[in-house]
Simulated scan of single mutants.
Amino acid sequence: MTTVSNNVAPSSLVASMNSSRPASGDSVSETQDRFMTLLVAQMKNQDPLNPLDNAQVTSQMAQLSTVTGVEKLNVTVQALQESYQASQSLAAVSMIGRGVFVPGSDIALQEGKAIFGVEMTESADEVTVEIRSAAGQLVHTIDLGAQSAGNVPLAWDGKTDSGATAKDGSYTFNVKAVRGGEEINVATGLSFGEVASVSNNAQGTKLHVAGIGAVQLSAIREVI
């Protein structure tokens, strides 16, 4: 028979119960059973001259209700999280083989063709894109003129400002936006790549994009 010393106050039952809980956690019913076992044992072993106070027992029962309620909520949230992750995985798998735009400043020129883009968080009077070689040399400038908020897909045919054809390889680009004659920070570069595979881990669902690497599903700005 489980015994509890009569010098254990009723308010300590939940604390005692929680301290003895296995690290992996118990079910709600096991939590309730453990509490009732401790309470009944304490009442059997109470000092007749100093019986348990009804108000304290009532308060302890209220605390048990709170504990079990929280545990039920945790179970529900866990189930919702698993369902959400499963939905994310299904959505991500459907992107395999598709082209996506993600925040970045890299351009891959292949067979004289390259795709990239610009994300505008606000409108601008003038937007300019500068493409540079791996050594940082300016290769080509694209004048996009005035742009409103939204994504702007772009294509580069590999032609330089001098009219020559750039070699296939890796390039970078930066975006400048001007409004009212002043440069403003409302434009972000978008790199382009094809989704090769999908993985799941503790950090969530990730897409593995060719030429870019692993990116979060939330980083996708556009799919084509």
Rank of each mutant, 00 (worst) to 15 (best):
T2S: 05
V8N: 05
A9D: 12
P10T: 04
S12P: 05
L13T: 09
M17A: 11
N18V: 12
S20R: 13
S20P: 05
R21Y: 09
S24E: 14
V28N: 05
D33W: 07
R34E: 09
R34V: 08
T37P: 03
A41V: 05
M43Y: 06
N45L: 15
L49A: 15
N50T: 11
L52W: 05
L52I: 10
D53P: 07
D53Q: 10
T58A: 14
Q60Y: 02
M61E: 03
M61N: 10
A62W: 01
Q63I: 10
T66M: 02
V67E: 01
T68C: 06
L73Y: 11
L73R: 10
V75L: 14
V77Y: 10
E82H: 13
Y84D: 09
Q85Y: 11
A86R: 11
A86S: 11
S87L: 06
Q88T: 00
S89C: 04
A91V: 04
A91S: 08
V93E: 10
I96Q: 07
G97R: 06
G97D: 08
P103K: 05
G104Q: 03
S105N: 13
S105Y: 13
D106Y: 11
L109T: 06
Q110Y: 10
K113F: 10
A114L: 01
I115V: 14
T121H: 04
E122F: 11
A124T: 05
V127M: 00
V127W: 04
V127G: 02
T128R: 12
V129T: 07
I131K: 03
R132E: 14
R132W: 08
R132P: 06
A135V: 14
A135R: 07
Q137D: 15
Q137G: 10
V139Y: 01
V139F: 01
H140A: 13
T141L: 00
D143G: 03
D143Y: 03
Q147G: 00
S148G: 15
G150V: 10
N151M: 06
P153L: 08
A155R: 09
W156A: 07
D157L: 04
T160E: 09
T160S: 12
D161K: 09
D161L: 07
S162T: 15
G163L: 12
A164E: 13
K167Y: 06
D168P: 15
T172M: 02
T172Y: 03
F173T: 06
F173N: 00
V175S: 04
K176L: 08
K176F: 06
K176N: 08
V178H: 00
I184M: 07
A187P: 02
A187T: 05
T188E: 04
L190R: 04
S191W: 03
G193L: 10
A196S: 13
A196Q: 11
S197A: 09
V198L: 08
N200F: 10
N201L: 11
A202Q: 15
A202L: 15
K206N: 08
L207P: 00
V209C: 07
A210Y: 12
A210D: 10
A210P: 03
A210C: 04
I212Q: 00
G213V: 06
A214G: 02
R221W: 01
V223M: 06
V223I: 15
V223G: 05
I224V: 13
